[in-house]
Every structure is written in structure tokens, then in C-alpha cells.
């Protein structure tokens, strides 16, 4: 199994930084928090082996855009996290080469999904993964259990992928519908239930995929 992705968080608001870190840890990332732009910049000189950076724009010491410029040589993909939702800074962030721009307050799941997208774009996510007794090969769309291939329909595979990448996080049926099928309307949630049922049966994940009342499903590690 690939080593955990290291995520740099530069956010001066301690509660927000801790909250992001808490979620990232649960989703099998390794978060590193800095609360000061200058401190982060100094620390990066020593150690810049990060897979992704989440930067606040308004930071003490050095603002997010300046820090972003300093970070460019290390080639770390950057997502800006800020309460400044004016178009000007959005454009500045994105034209400057940032991968994404998330406005506070944001949804945790949204942050994770966007991070996932950025990571897969920069090829930092693993091509294969092991979950319990399953080997999942994203490149070849293949799941093997103890060396035996289990045939999954394309939608079932994608559903599995979304659950795996957001493991330990409950995702609503509507969200799953949007993420896997690309539909944004309520009503067809039965489809999700059917596919979840298939996954549980085919992969033996009956206990791992938990149904969370009133919210949705959650794939749990242990």
C-alpha cells in the first residue's frame, strides 16, 4: 500500500486547521499544520515533500498568494481556502496556477473530493490500493480478492472508488448519485441502494459499508 499523502495546511485559524486535519487523518492523509505564512515558508525550505497544500489567503507573516509564489519551485499543487470570496482574488489565485479555490464556509466532503481530484490529476494517488482482503487496481478497473478477480459493473466500480477515497466519511445518497452518476437530482436514490447492495454482496463488505441513518453510507476501515 502506498504511503499516506502528506498534506500541508497553512491556516491561522486554529479551529479550522484542526478541523481539516481531523478529517484528513480520518481519510488516510497525513496533515501538517502551520498557522503562520512565514513559518510555513521557512519550514518548506527544510522539508517540501508534500503532495498537496491547502493555503489560506489572509495569513499572518506572509499572505497566501506570496507563500504560493515561494512554493512554486517545489511543484506542490495548491488549493486556496479563504473567506475572501470576491472574484478578484479568485482569479488571482487560479491564474497564478493554483489548482483550486474553495470559499469558506465549505463542506468537508467537498474539500475532500476536490483534493482527490487535484491529487489524481497530479498523479499523486496510488494506482492500486489494498482494502482488507481486496486489491483494487484503479488503472485497470479491476478488483481481486485473494488473487481471484471479481467482476464489477462500471458503476459499481466507480461507487467503490468514491467510497474508498472518502473512507470513514458518511456520504449521502444524493451526493453519491452526483459523484458517481453525475446526476444532481433527488429521487433516484434507490439506484444507489441497489449498487451498495451489490458491492456488499460481491465483495463481502456487508459490515464495512455502514448505513448511517438519515445521512447515507460510510465505508469503514476497521
Amino acid at each position: 500500500m502506498k504511503q499516506k499523502c502528506r498534506i500541508l495546511i497553512v491556516e491561522d485559524e486554529e479551529p479550522i486547521a484542526k478541523m481539516i486535519a481531523m478529517n484528513l487523518r480520518v481519510a488516510s492523509y497525513e496533515p501538517w499544520i502551520f498557522q503562520d505564512g512565514l513559518e510555513a515558508c521557512e519550514a518548506l525550505k527544510e522539508d517540501h515533500d508534500y503532495d498537496l497544500a491547502l493555503l489560506d489567503v489572509m495569513l499572518p507573516g506572509m499572505d497566501g498568494f506570496a507563500l504560493f509564489e515561494e512554493m512554486k519551485p517545489y511543484g506542490i499543487p495548491v488549493i486556496f481556502l479563504t473567506a475572501k470570496d470576491d472574484i478578484g482574488s479568485k482569479v488571482q489565485g487560479l491564474t497564478g496556477g493554483a489548482e483550486d479555490y474553495i470559499v469558506k464556509p465549505f463542506e468537508v466532503l467537498e474539500l475532500l473530493v476536490r483534493m482527490e481530484k487535484v491529487l489524481s490529476r497530479s498523479g499523486k494517488t496510488g494506482q492500486a490500493e489494498v482494502f482488507r482482503d481486496l486489491q483494487i487496481d484503479y488503472a485497470r478497473h479491476m478488483v481481486t480478492k485473494n488473487g481471484v478477480e471479481i467482476s464489477l459493473k462500471p458503476m459499481e466500480f466507480q461507487l467503490l472508488e468514491v467510497l474508498l477515497k472518502n473512507r470513514n466519511i458518511a456520504i449521502s445518497r444524493e451526493k453519491l448519485l452526483g459523484l458517481v452518476w453525475g446526476v444532481d437530482f433527488v429521487g433516484e436514490t434507490r439506484t444507489v441502494d441497489v449498487h451498495i447492495g451489490q458491492l456488499r454482496k460481491k465483495l463481502g463488505l456487508g459490515d464495512a459499508i455502514k448505513t448511517i441513518p438519515k445521512i447515507g453510507y460510510r465505508l469503514e476501515d476497521a
Binding site: E13, P15, I16, M19, I20, M22, N23, V26, M58, A83, K84, K104, P105, F106, E107, V108, L109, N168, I169, A170, I171, I212, I215, R218, E220
Partner: peptide, 28 residues
Amino acid sequence: LTHELKTPMTSISGYTQTLLQVKVSEED
């Protein structure tokens, strides 16, 4: 004012979502 409101709102909503959706340890 918006910024001052958004910052605590982000934390509160983030933690609430975490508690609702994520399997977290007792400590967390």
C-alpha cells in the same frame, strides 16, 4: 463583518459535519 462571521461558521459547520458523517475517535 462577513469575514468575522464566516471564520467561526466554517469551524462550527466543519466540526458538525465531521461529527455527523465521520467515524472519529472519542478524543477527536
